[in-house]
Design a protein around this nucleic acid. Structure first.
Length: 427
RNA sequence: GCGGCCAUAGCUCAAGGGUAGAGCACCUGGUUGUGGCCCAGGAGGUUGUGGGUUCGAGCCCCACUGGUCGCCCCA
């Protein structure tokens, strides 16, 4: 056992997993670009206040999951537990309201939450976060959901499910909770679990997404917030669903979907995939019309979503979806003798300059050993150079798959390989 | 933070309280300069860490660390 191991809840993404990662990240970038989202980099840590105010004091994230520390200058800093608050901070700080609205940004990188690790749940995980700031049109909500949809479908997911709900705005949500939900839950409190009774006191809305078996009947029959939205929220929700229906994006209305971050208004949605156990959400998001103002900017609407890369990779594996293979050197140089090795090094350099990956065997091992290495490297062609070839100014080139081998004049080697591997590659 | 299960070679796993093994993977060979298959050999472990019981612990007990499943919450 190694003396040191990766800290609890963190992991190394090893070379074997990189085809999955590169594929998922590349697809995410491609999809975002297709919708006009631009990349942004924001700090891995922010002033603690950004998250406390942005994410919300009542949330689990702020209450017990943040990596907060004091730097040597006495500042309280926090490793980002999510992207949205930091991106909105950057939007405000750099006066992006003067740009054409909405400002559409995406970021990819690690986020940190101090949680009990489980499969698909890490203390450091990687998010793809997509934000559309400055537009209230439900079309912006639809666009965000489309990015999510396109990403997951491009990756070939089956059994994808979108859960959709609207949780209203500061005008209609509080009256619903106070006058409708709480009285209802109180009237059936005997049927609620102990845990849900606590939630009823602390955050009644959260009772709706309980997993407690005994509470299910009560929650299933609870009055839906969608029935109590104000006219603006109701119209917004209807328009979003119109777009979803028009373009046949499958979704399921889930009046019990609420989310754990305070900043959400109106639209909330989650994407779930099979094969992940309890952590079945591969992405989620919603509208956050109050967030910019909370962080000190002018009242500005916004909507976004985040996807967890680790969970996507787990779901891909669970569904048996294989990533495309990654590019590897396609030519392997085998040599015998000091002069031949030098010639191989020089030839490989020329091959690479023409854009073809090439490897040269290290050391002075036997031809057999070098051939074995060539085979394992995944290269398509082996170039063999020895005294005889050197004397004739040639090399032997062997195609590993067919076993066919022929002599090629050294001076023509680069063009010969380029012709077969780049210009007219055979499938 | 709470509860269950688990921890032996790089990986997957064996080893009735009595000297730690196999398969795969890795390296090297199998006559002069040719891969995959096959054969042979080699390297690789303070049995997660620290205590305890015992003549003797990979095995029994305790604690810690980490993983895993569920709760909580989310990506």
């Amino acid at each position: 056992m190694a003396r040191y191991q990766a800290p609890r809840g963190t992991q190394d993404v090893l070379p074997d997993d990189q085809p999955y990662w590169q594929w998922v990240l590349g697809t995410a970038r491609d999809v975002a670009a297709k919708y006009g989202f631009w990349p942004i980099e924001v700090p891995v840590f922010e002033e603690t206040e950004v998250f406390v105010r942005g994410v919300g004091t009542g949330t689990d994230i702020v209450e017990k999951e943040m990596y907060t520390f004091e730097d040597r200058g006495g500042r309280s800093l926090t490793l980002r537990p999510e992207f949205t608050a930091g991106i909105v901070r950057a939007y405000i700080e750099h006066g992006m309201r003067v740009r054409p609205q909405p400002v559409k940004l995406y970021a990819i990188g690690p986020v940190f939450r101090y949680e009990a690790p489980q499969a698909g749940r890490y203390r450091q995980h990687t998010q793809f976060s997509c934000e559309s700031i400055g537009e209230a049109d439900p079309l912006a909500d639809f666009e965000i959901m489309s990015v999510a949809w396109d990403l997951y479908t491009a990756l070939g997911f089956r059994e994808l499910q979108f859960q959709l709900n609207s949780i209203g705005c500061p005008r209609c949500r509080p009256p619903y909770i106070r006058d409708v939900l709480v009285p209802y839950l109180h009237s059936r409190r005997d049927e609620l679990s102990k845990l849900d009774l606590e939630r009823l006191q602390k955050n009644p809305l959260r009772v709706l997404d309980t997993k407690e078996p005994e509470s299910q009947p009560v929650v299933n029959e609870a009055p839906s917030i969608v029935e109590h939205l104000c006219s603006e929220c109701s119209e917004h929700f209807a328009q979003l669903r119109f777009y979803l229906d028009m373009l046949e994006r499958p979704y399921e209305l889930n009046p019990r979907l609420v989310r754990g971050l305070d900043y959400y208004t109106r639209t909330v949605f989650e994407v779930t995939a099979q094969g992940l156990g309890a952590q079945n959400a591969v992405g989620g998001g919603g509208r956050y019309d109050g967030l910019v103002e909370v962080l000190g900017g002018a009242p500005t609407p916004g909507v976004g979503f985040a996807a967890g890369i680790e969970r996507i990779v787990l779901a891909l594996k669970a569904q048996g979806i294989a990533p495309p293979s990654m590019p590897a050197p396609r030519v392997f140089f085998v040599h015998r003798g000091r002069l031949a090795k030098d010639a191989a090094v020089a030839l490989a350099d020329q091959v690479r300059r023409r854009g073809v990956g090439a490897l040269v065997a290290f050391g002075e091992r036997s031809i057999k050993a070098q051939m074995r290495q060539a085979s394992k490297s995944g290269a398509e062609y082996v170039v063999i150079i020895g005294d005889e070839e050197l004397a004739r100014g040639e090399v032997q080139v062997k195609h590993l798959e067919t076993g066919h081998q022929e002599a090629v004049v050294q001076a023509n080697l680069v063009a010969w390989l380029h012709e077969r591997l780049v210009a007219h590659p055979s499938p």
